[in-house]
Amino acid sequence: MSAEPAAPQPRSGKTARLPRTARRFQLLGAAREVFVAQGYHAAAMDEIAERAGVSKPVLYQHFPGKLELYLALLDEQAHALVSSVQRALASTTDNHTRIARSIAAYFDFVDDPSGAYQLVLESDLRSEPAVRKRVENSFTECANAIADVIAADTGVGPAEAELLSIGLVGLAETGARWWLVTGGAVSKEQAVATMVELAWRGLAGYPRRTTGTDPTPARETTGDGDASSGP
């Protein structure tokens, strides 16, 4: 009896077809790894395509060039940060908790093992106008969300609320980056708590509107263990 013919083998180098959304997700994941490891300038589209297991033509079908690919990743990460801060603000009406969760959002953002936070907070392409605009927009969106809450709760004018919110965002971002750079010199929980109390002692000095939110300032613990009211 003659042997059955061998089953046809897939053509060498042929890329499996995926739905466009799934392919884009795959390409962004590969690009994220390369950009984080090497930075924008050292990254090569050849390496990104190889990491994704696709040909360069497939990569270029989705992204016309390296900058467009980088901007897509930057948009993804900036949106993740802004959304996290907005969720933190909307999650409660207790102002101390709002501050705590908003600051924690920054620490969680930099504590991502993928290192994707670098695209927003430590991009090596800030000189590129499109990149700079996106980074600035993410900062502004976070600040605006916080300013709206401050203005609604305290009654201060828009300009003062904006200034306070910019200070809070700057504190959260700088504190989170310090914690990361020092390799967790203090625990994440302690770092967040320290930044929260620093921010709260300043914001608690502003009068509260009667809107049903909790106006009670943070309580501090005295040396003998008794709790006393904050500022």
Rank of each mutant, 00 (worst) to 15 (best):
E136A: 14
E173G: 01
C142I: 09
A90H: 04
L119W: 00
E173C: 05
E141Q: 15
T174G: 13
I146Q: 04
H62M: 09
R132L: 12
L74Q: 12
A30R: 09
R219I: 04
L81K: 07
G13F: 08
V135I: 15
E76Y: 03
P19Y: 06
R17N: 14
P5A: 15
L180I: 08
R201F: 07
F35N: 02
F107C: 08
D214K: 03
R209D: 00
W200I: 01
S83K: 12
S127I: 10
V149E: 06
A199C: 09
L125A: 14
T93M: 02
T154N: 07
K66I: 03
Q77K: 14
P10D: 00
N144A: 15
L168N: 08
A104H: 02
G175V: 09
L164N: 09
G225H: 03
G212H: 01
T140G: 10
L203P: 00
E220R: 15
V135T: 12
A3T: 11
R219E: 12
E162P: 00
R17Y: 08
A72N: 07
I150C: 01
A22N: 09
P207Q: 05
D214S: 06
T210F: 11
G157K: 04
I146P: 08
K188R: 14
A161Q: 07
D148G: 08
P113I: 05
G13A: 10
K133V: 15
V120A: 02
Q61D: 13
A78L: 04
E141V: 09
G230N: 05
Y106K: 00
Y117T: 02
E189H: 01
L198V: 14
D112I: 05
I103L: 10
T222M: 11
E47K: 14
L163R: 13
A204S: 14
G223F: 10
